[in-house]
């Protein structure tokens, strides 16, 4: 199996009034074809920049991003994108929103063929019968489903998602995780998912990549060793619980906090308690500007530990 996405030695800085602001420094990422890579990390660490690099919307200052073996220098038609904001076009029906990429990628495709393809996807995500509706008539979860259909309608080889489920309530989010799982079973694509939700990363991911605080480097890679056909229940399973604990600790390191974990691991229900295990002091400056400074935390995370457990 070849790596469909290969990112090596990527550095990138934004030019700001206060001088260059490095966001990525030493980013490594490789995703084999057909695999699902979930990327987690503290907020503001440059995760969205990563999606724009893979999509070819930006070029890195240094290092290279390869897609299907070729270096990414400009946008490619083999990419689909979905964002936290579903960005559906209000003046188009749901069906015509889903068709939009085909108008760019396959301008000569007959309308009937486009409609058939869009309807196939809408049916898969449970939006059959909503083709004629306007986006404003749909709930947030339904809009996000339509947005997923649009990202996949032109059969991209890579699907890039930037916190697509971030604005949804918990139960809707879990529904969409399952929709995503089903879509993957039906359509073949490689996936990069940016998320803040560790449960989401474990449920959907084949591998979970933890990025360090800004400037982001690859801090940790976890191979998710769970069966393909996962159900939500698996998150309450011992193995998933252990992974979530591990990831939570890695996030704490990424945030630059070396205070000892507030749990002992075994005395907590795995999974359900894995989220929100921050120490009282740690909650204070979460996500603030300039958070995750280059503190002593970086030193206590020995480089040897930056590679994944199962690697």
């Amino acid at each position: 199996m070849t790596d469909l996405i290969a990112i090596s030695g990527v550095r990138h800085a934004y030019r700001t009034k206060a001088g260059p602001l490095p966001v990525l420094d030493g980013l490594e990422l490789s995703v084999p074809e057909g695999r699902f890579c979930a990327v987690v990390g503290p907020s503001g660490c440059g995760k969205s920049t990563l999606t724009r690099l893979i999509a070819g919307l930006m070029k890195p200052d240094q290092g290279e991003v390869r897609l299907e073996g070729r270096r990414v220098t400009s946008p490619r038609r083999t990419v689909g994108m979905a964002f936290q904001n579903p960005v559906l076009l209000e003046w188009r029906s749901i069906l015509d929103n889903v068709i939009l990429p085909l108008e760019i990628v396959a301008p000569r495709m007959p309308r009937a063929e486009r409609v058939a393809r869009a309807e196939e996807l809408l049916d898969m995500v449970g939006l059959a019968g909503f083709e004629g509706k306007r986006p404003s008539e749909l709930s947030g979860g339904m809009r996000q489903r339509a947005s997923l259909c649009r990202a996949l309608v032109h059969r991209p080889s890579v699907l890039i998602m930037d916190e697509p489920f971030g604005a949804l309530d918990n139960f809707t989010r879990e529904d969409l995780w399952q929709t995503m799982r089903d879509l993957r079973a039906r359509e073949r694509f490689t996936c990069v998912l940016i998320t803040h939700d560790l449960r989401e990363s474990v449920f959907l991911g084949d591998q979970v990549v933890v990025l360090s605080g800004r400037p982001a480097r690859t801090q940790y890679v976890l191979d998710v060793d769970l069966p393909e056909d996962r159900t939500i229940d698996i998150l309450y399973d011992r193995r998933a619980g252990d992974m979530l604990h591990l990831l939570r600790d890695q996030i704490r390191i990424a945030q630059g906090r070396d205070d000892p974990p507030a749990h002992t691991g075994s005395d907590l229900l795995p999974g359900s308690a894995a989220q929100g295990l921050t120490t009282p002091g740690a909650a204070r400056d979460a996500g603030g500007p300039g958070g995750a400074p280059d503190g002593p935390a970086r030193k206590t995370a020995p480089d040897g530990a930056t590679r994944g457990a199962a690697r």
Binding site: R52, A55, G56, L57, S74, P75, R76, R77, V79, M81, F83, N85, V87, L89, E90, W91, L100, P101, E103, I104, V105, R150, H154, I160
Partner: peptide, 26 residues
């Protein structure tokens, strides 16, 4: 919003196409 531009730009659409299909109607 940049995302509106990005959904078409990531497919290699031209500036004019983005204007015609998204920016103008919006």
């Amino acid at each position: 919003e940049p995302e509106y531009r990005d959904i078409l730009r990531s497919l290699g659409a031209s500036r004019f196409t983005i204007f015609r299909k998204i920016a103008l109607p919006k």
